[in-house]
Amino acid sequence: MHYTATGLDNRKIAIWAFIGSECMLFMSLISTYLIYKGKSVVGPFPHEAWTDPMTGRVFHGILDIPVTSASTFVLLMSSLFMVLALAAVQNKHVPKHTTGDRILGSSRLWLFMTALAGTTFLGFQAFEFTSFVHEGLTIRRNLFGSTFFTLTGFHGAHVTAGVLWLLTLLAIDFKRGLTAADEMVVDMCALYWHFVDVVWIAIFTLIYLIR
């Protein structure tokens, strides 16, 4: 192994520094959402109903908690799949005896499941965005629309990047098979993926649940 001052891999230090930086990125987005909460001049609003004084049209609180709870659950489970994918890559050399061992040890399966869960989450988000637009909330409509779509859109873009990263790893796995030597590459992707997940944990509570 190449000498490093801490004995750690350069890439892992860089990815953690990157995650630290992302904390400030999402801090800015979440702060803006919270600062503008309740400051929109016109509806629709996240939770409360609003009647348009010009047309008399009633807009109900727009957030769909059951649907978002489902997508939140899918994203949480994707984190489980991701740790299993990493463990499978780390334990490539360990002999598998039972069917259970072989399933748990399949990095292709778990990378695929993680990417699938991420894509499902994005599907939920696409559904959510289109139904909001149909209900009259666009990114231009009011402050809530601007801050909501920008914040969750940024998160969705991070999920998209993560899915592409996972699919790249999956392609490498199919092409030549990931080995324990690739642990660091998968670990970096996993750290990024979990970070995107914890950001959603914060968003789900701060934006969807707290009224």
Binding site: K39, V41, R140, L143, G145
Partner: peptide, 12 residues
């Protein structure tokens, strides 16, 4: 056309 800095839309 978002409203982050649009005062008439309530932006600060």
């Amino acid at each position: 056309g978002t409203n982050f800095y649009t005062v008439t839309a309530g932006g600060d």
